[in-house]
Design a protein around this nucleic acid. Structure first.
Length: 102
DNA sequence: GGGCTGACTGACG
DNA sequence: ACGTCAGCCAGCC
């Protein structure tokens, strides 16, 4: 079994298909940590760089990565470029773009 | 080596 | 609908 949970987080994020998004809690639950959504956030914060981090959003479909300066507009731009549309409230429709085959 | 922090979430009042 | 609390793991003082 892999060492840290973060290793699996990166692996899952790397598997997210083009034009789809996943939530932190979704990943956490996939790892067997229903309450470990924060761990995913911790792992993403380190942002290796080669991961499609922009495809990771919060449970509401909002952009949590926007908390870090310079990422909010970028993440939205990257997602829209992949065909992911945002609602009037600035949120992604998880029912449509959510990756449920995790 | 011990304690704090963090890109989150769901439950409760 | 809104504020607060607890829970997870690893890295960094």
């Amino acid at each position: 079994m892999p060492r840290g949970v973060y290793k699996r987080v990166y692996e899952v994020v790397a598997r997210v298909p083009y034009g789809k998004v996943v939530t932190y809690g979704q990943i956490a639950r996939h790892l067997g940590l229903p309450k470990g959504a924060r761990l995913v956030g911790w792992a993403m914060r380190r942002c290796p760089g080669e991961l499609p981090w922009h495809r990771v959003v919060n449970a509401q479909g909002g952009l949590s990565a926007g908390a870090h300066p310079g990422h909010c507009p970028l993440q939205r731009a990257l997602l829209e470029d992949e065909g992911v549309s945002f609602g009037p409230d600035g949120r992604v429709d998880l029912a449509t773009f959510g990756w449920d085959e995790i």
